[in-house]
Structures are given as structure tokens and as C-alpha cells.
Amino acid sequence: MDSTRLIAVATERAEELPGAERENPFGPEWDVYKVRGRVFLLVLLDDTGRVTLKSHPDDAVALREAFSDIVPGYHMNKKHWITLQPGDSLEHDLVSELVTESYRLVVERLPRAKRPVDPDTFGIRREDDPG
């Protein structure tokens, strides 16, 4: 997946998520997606095409080992964040799923009254779900 497509897939998914908002708190070089004021996606708007997402620490290690285009979070806590870089190991469904999971991780840390969705069920496909 090239940089243009990577950014497009990640941002399109982020914009679909309930309560998600795009801001530019770090200037015009960064698009930052937040839910209820908490960051779940950072997009560096330069020629690198980097997309940074929150990840469970165990998942972050496994993802970095399984996909050559997933590296420790760029300018973030390397334990809790991953960065997706353009490359052949990333596919549309994986990128979309990782954005959703990052969002869920942030939502589950919000007070229940502020959660736009139930993080225990949102975006998780059940085995008996045909869709």
C-alpha cells in the first residue's frame, strides 16, 4: 500500500467512527483524530505517509513481528503506540481494523457516560455474524 492509500484508508475509517474529530494541535503537518478529546490516530502529512495508532502492548509486539511495515510509534510511547509505514505488508482491512482497535482502546478508558460506543462490542465481528 502506498502512502496516499495508507493515509486515505486510515482517515476514512477514523471519520466513520462515532464521536471522532480531526484537529491540528501540532500545526498543519499533523492531522490528529480524537474521541472525546483523547488521541487515537496521528497522521503525519509529509511524504513519508506515516500513520500512528494506539495498540495494546502485547498486540504491538506481535504486529511488529508479523508485518515489516509496522514499527514502534513515531515520537510516541513505543510500548503503547505503533506506526504504519507504506509498504507491501499492509492491506486495507488490516489498516481499517487497526484504526478501529486504536479507537476502542481509547474509548474503553473514557468514563462510561462519555463513551460514544460500548468498547466491548463495537467493531468486533462475531463468528455467527455473516457480514
Results as ranks from 00 to 15, higher is better:
Ser3Lys: 07
Thr4His: 00
Thr4Glu: 04
Val9Trp: 14
Ala10Glu: 07
Ala14Trp: 09
Glu15Val: 00
Leu17Pro: 08
Ala20Val: 05
Ala20Ser: 12
Glu21Phe: 10
Arg22Gln: 06
Glu23Trp: 13
Asn24Ala: 10
Asn24Lys: 13
Pro25Val: 03
Phe26Val: 00
Phe26Cys: 01
Gly27Ile: 02
Pro28Gln: 13
Trp30Lys: 08
Trp30Ser: 09
Tyr33Ile: 00
Tyr33Asp: 01
Arg38Thr: 00
Arg38Glu: 04
Arg38Ala: 02
Val43Thr: 04
Leu44Cys: 10
Leu44Asp: 09
Leu44His: 15
Leu44Arg: 15
Arg50Gln: 14
Thr52Phe: 09
Leu53Ile: 00
Asp58Lys: 11
Val61Ala: 12
Arg64Tyr: 14
Glu65Asn: 05
Ala66Tyr: 05
Ser68Pro: 04
Pro72Gly: 13
Gly73Val: 04
His75Trp: 14
Met76Gln: 14
Asn77Met: 07
Asn77Asp: 12
Lys79Ala: 11
Thr83Lys: 06
Gln85Ile: 06
Ser89Val: 01
Leu90Asp: 11
His92Val: 02
Val95Arg: 01
Glu97Asn: 03
Thr100His: 11
Ser102Gln: 07
Val106Ala: 01
Val107Trp: 06
Arg109Gln: 13
Leu110Trp: 08
Pro116His: 11
Asp118Phe: 11
Asp118Tyr: 13
Pro119Gly: 08
Pro119Ala: 03
Pro119Tyr: 12
Thr121Cys: 12
Arg125Trp: 12
Asp128Met: 03
Asp128Pro: 02
Asp128Glu: 15
Asp128Asn: 09
Asp129Gln: 07
Pro130Cys: 07
Pro130Phe: 13
